[in-house]
Write a protein that binds this DNA or RNA. Structure first.
Lengths: 172, 172
DNA sequence: ACCCTCTGTGTGATTTTATAACGTTACGAG
DNA sequence: CTCGTAACGTTATAAAATCACACAGAGGGT
């Protein structure tokens, strides 16, 4: 499906999270993408996992594991923490979902398919989360790492602040 | 742990964390700096707070709140979680200590006094933590934020990987 | 068909991390 | 000294994450 995967340019780096978009479509597209990628790679997108991914795509924001768990229970799945955590592990492992460390919460990946080291903008008012690209290893941090002999394997980049809506409403 | 002395060839970008240095001195200097800054700014570096800062300076790595709490108890302070969390709040608030979101743990700031948005390198093997500078708002992320109308107030930048020592030992 | 193994699921219990709520103490301004 | 506030100590509880173990179902080999 992601044959139409767009190259990530700076403009395009404008995050999905804070803008109006065709939500129905965005959810369906992403789900379909996940499905086909799993088929390709022999991964098993089981009902629980699919449900969790769907939930996270529906909300365009970070959900805690227990919020997810509640919804799973309502949907008739197991209701103990490991159920949610295992599904999340799978989804994170395979890049369908990202963990927001700052919030101990999870969001669906907005750039399905693209190899990326994600960066997030988190609104401290309304908790909206938008995903952008980052290239932390290219900047000052990368230089520091090389200088120190540190091998970067993975990066967490999370910006906290005010989203456009909240800036307007509370220009304080 | 490692008595392995590496050349202190330091390029300024190089972080303090992964190198041998005069630890005694570094602890004392930092404590003194904290004290004088608190005096200047009318902040109260109380015994608990001072003790916590000292502990974090001693270890050059991240400690969880409960590890800190244990040591506080041993030192004769209150032994309930809020004691540690309150001290940590104060220290983080005033820039003496940083929280490592990835680890839910805390490290003393390595660049006392300098206005900074810190970045961390975290060794996944030995948990060593080094602090470097970052300028996330200057790069791709900054561009994305401007494009989206997002106002960045604070950033979390944490790189996970292998520190020099662990790279040598387990080149895997 | 069968057995076997491996992965995923369901559940109870527990650990780890963090906050709420409330009374008491200590400090500084007046 | 007296008052108001900031810091502390304690009990209790919430929130986040993991452990341990049993069972179910898919696939492979025979």
């Amino acid at each position: 499906m992601t044959s139409n995967t767009r190259p990530i340019s700076v403009d395009d780096a404008a995050p999905i999270g804070f803008q109006k978009h065709d939500h129905e479509n965005c959810v369906e597209t992403a789900l379909a993408a996940a499905e086909s990628r799993c088929k390709e790679e022999g991964l098993r997108l089981t009902p629980v996992r699919r449900k969790v991914l769907e939930m996270l795509l529906q909300e365009h924001r970070a959900l805690g594991a227990y919020a997810i768990l509640d919804r799973l229970r309502d949907a008739g799945f197991g209701s103990q923490p490991p159920v949610a955590y295992r599904a999340l592990d799978f989804l994170v492992q395979n890049g369908f979902v990202h963990k927001i460390e700052r919030l101990n919460a999870f969001v669906a990946c907005s750039h399905p398919g693209a190899a990326h080291s994600p960066a997030f903008m988190i609104c401290r008012k309304c908790d909206a989360v938008a995903e952008a690209q980052s290239a932390p290893a290219k900047g000052v941090l990368g230089a520091a790492a090389r200088a120190a002999g540190f091998e970067i394997e993975r990066t967490v980049v999370e910006a906290e602040g005010l989203c456009p809506d909240c800036t307007e409403k509370a220009p304080k």
